[in-house]
Structures are given as C-alpha cells and as structure tokens.
Amino acid sequence: MTSNEANGSSKRVAVYGAGGHTGRFVVAELLRRGLDVVAVARDAAKLDPLLQSSDRVAVRAATVDDGGSLDRAFDGVTVVINCAGPFLDTAGPVASAALRVGAHYLDVTAEQPSARATIDTFGAIAGEAGLVVMPAMGFYGGLGDLLATAAMGDWDAADEIRIGIALDSWHPTAGTRITGERNQARRQVVSQGSLVPVTLPPREMDWEFPAPVLVRPVVEVPFSEIVTISSHLRAAELHNYLSRNALEDVRSDATPAPKPTDETGRSAQRFLVEAVASKGGIVRRVAVRGRDIYAFSAPLVCEAAARLLDHRAETGGAMAPGAMFEPIEFLAALESADSDFRIIQR
C-alpha cells in the first residue's frame, strides 16, 4: 500500500492504462470531479510524478498477463475504466478482474471484435453480480450510441440509422496505430436487419453536416458503435461514416501524433458527429460538436463512471450507453463538463 492509499474512499475509480494518452485525460477528469482515483500502469514508476504525490491518487502496478496483480490493483474500487489498448488484448483480463473484485467495468475501445467479445463473455456474469459492463464508452462507440438513441426518441424501430463523423484532422496516437495493426478483422454493419461484413470497397457519399462543417465527403468506416447500437436499437440499416480527410490522415505514416495546444494537453482538433434516424419518410437528426477526440473520451467515460458509483444492482449486465442513460440529459451533462462541447439538434 502506498502512502496515498491511507486516505482511501469506498467509492474509488481505477484507471488501467493511466499513463497513456487517453488515460492521462481520464485521470485528470476524475480528479476535476472530486473523485478518488487508483492509477494503474504496467510500470507505476513511469506515471506522472504529480500523481505519485497526490493525496487523491493511489498508484498501483499491474499487467494483463498477471491476474493476481490486476486483482490487487482493483481491490477496493467501485468502477474500473480500461484505457489501455489494443483492447483485443486487454479487455478480457481487465474486465474479468474488475468483476472478480465486484467493480463495474468501462472501456473506450473503438474495436468491434473487442466490444462484441466483452458483451458476449461478461454480460451474463455481470448481470448475476448486479454489476455493469459497458465497452466502447469513448468517442468512437459511446458518443454515436447516445446520439442514435436520442435521434430514435420514442420509435421502437427505424428504417435506417446513420452516424456521420466529421474531423478536421486525425493525428493518431501511437496506441491508435498499434491497435489498427492488431485489429485486422472485417468490420460489420447492419443491413436488412442483420449484422453483415461491410461492403468492399466501402460506400462513399457527400454528407451535409450542420454548420460550421456543411458538406463533407465521407467513407463508410464502422466502429464499435455498430456493436453497441445494434444491441439495443432496431434498425433495418445501420451504417457509420467518417470524413475522407480523417481517414487519409490516419492511414498515412507521415501524419504526426496529436500536438498539445494548451495546459490541459488538448490538441486543436475539432469534430462534429451527427446521428440520422429515418422511418417512413420521417427524418430525425441530432448532432454534437467538440474538440480533440482523445481528450473528449475523458468526460464521456467519466460521466458514466460517476453515475455507476451510485448504481443499483437491479440493472446489471452488459449495457449500451443509450440503453442505460437518458441520452439528451447525459449529453447535456457533458456540456457542463466540457466547455468546447455543444449539442446541435436539428
């Protein structure tokens, strides 16, 4: 036990991968919310020295190939947030350890196979324990799921749900590049009511986004929101599109990593995400805009974690964000947590 753990709380949040790019944003956001944090890394000595000295942070070391180290790291926490990719390698061990110690599990994966495996493997176990397992609670995954649920409103089914993601640039982290190399599975979409492999070559179209983005060429690139949305919303067609310029950025070896532009470490990157639901000729749209896709995952997943600290056991299991939280109210809470984030309803 470190000296920081002497002031332990009964409601602490563990962050696995606390030393990574997204993990650092998540730890900072939890502390901003006044929550006690257990910062977990493979090598705790490499964590920010400020964490080592904070009386709100306990620092612990653990690796995914040592289940005992994970159990010890998560002992006494209420929620575990996994920020360490590739999630195909980390989600299983980290989620398993979280459930063993009686903690809820969240991650920020964009990987469809990882999100699906987490739901299939741990949903029933979590439900029996009154715990929540929620993969893909990040920019890719959770945000699109909340927007799609908001666009659906009171509909019990839709003819089509489309998610459009416009980025002014995508400077990938080293972790994003490693994850892309690790995840070679064929991506899936919903067509004619069933999950099927995405069409190759992928569909392209011009998407008319709200101002200030307006018309942008997009390419079909399904992320983990396809898995989460299809787990609780019914649509004959479900597709996800990414602006072509962002896809070209992330595919280029010459694109540099994100560059911090302020004291928080955020980059200047801007995003706009829109969900469009259609049924019988009626179209509903909900969109949001914000800054830095990696940094934004922090208020998103931390808002979910904060709500799970007071979660009641009757609604355990594998949960999609839109199935568990009222989406517009949740998104409105993010506006309060992130000054760059805004809801745009059309």
Score class of each variant (00 low, 15 high):
residue 215 V to E: 10
residue 220 E to F: 07
residue 216 R to P: 00
residue 224 S to W: 12
residue 216 R to F: 00
residue 230 S to A: 10
residue 237 E to V: 12
residue 237 E to K: 14
residue 230 S to T: 08
residue 218 V to C: 09
residue 211 A to I: 12
residue 228 T to Y: 01
residue 225 E to G: 09
residue 239 H to V: 11
residue 238 L to K: 04
residue 229 I to C: 02
residue 229 I to D: 00
residue 211 A to S: 15
residue 215 V to S: 12
residue 215 V to I: 09
residue 217 P to M: 07
residue 212 P to L: 13
residue 220 E to P: 00
residue 233 L to T: 02
residue 216 R to I: 00
residue 225 E to K: 09
residue 212 P to C: 13
residue 216 R to D: 08
residue 231 S to W: 04
residue 227 V to Y: 03
residue 215 V to P: 01
residue 216 R to W: 05
residue 226 I to G: 05
residue 233 L to G: 07
residue 217 P to R: 09
residue 230 S to P: 06
residue 222 P to I: 12
residue 235 A to G: 01
residue 226 I to Y: 08
residue 238 L to E: 05
residue 214 L to F: 14
residue 238 L to T: 02
residue 211 A to W: 11
residue 232 H to V: 03
residue 225 E to V: 05
residue 218 V to M: 05
residue 231 S to R: 09
residue 228 T to H: 04
residue 237 E to D: 11
residue 235 A to L: 00
residue 230 S to N: 09
residue 239 H to I: 08
residue 234 R to C: 00
residue 223 F to H: 14
residue 216 R to M: 08
residue 219 V to G: 08
residue 239 H to D: 08
residue 228 T to M: 05
residue 232 H to D: 00
residue 227 V to G: 07
residue 222 P to F: 09
residue 217 P to W: 04
residue 225 E to Y: 07
residue 220 E to R: 10
residue 212 P to W: 11
residue 225 E to I: 03
residue 229 I to M: 06
residue 238 L to I: 01
residue 235 A to P: 04
residue 219 V to F: 04
residue 220 E to I: 02
residue 211 A to D: 15
residue 230 S to R: 06
residue 221 V to R: 14
residue 229 I to F: 02
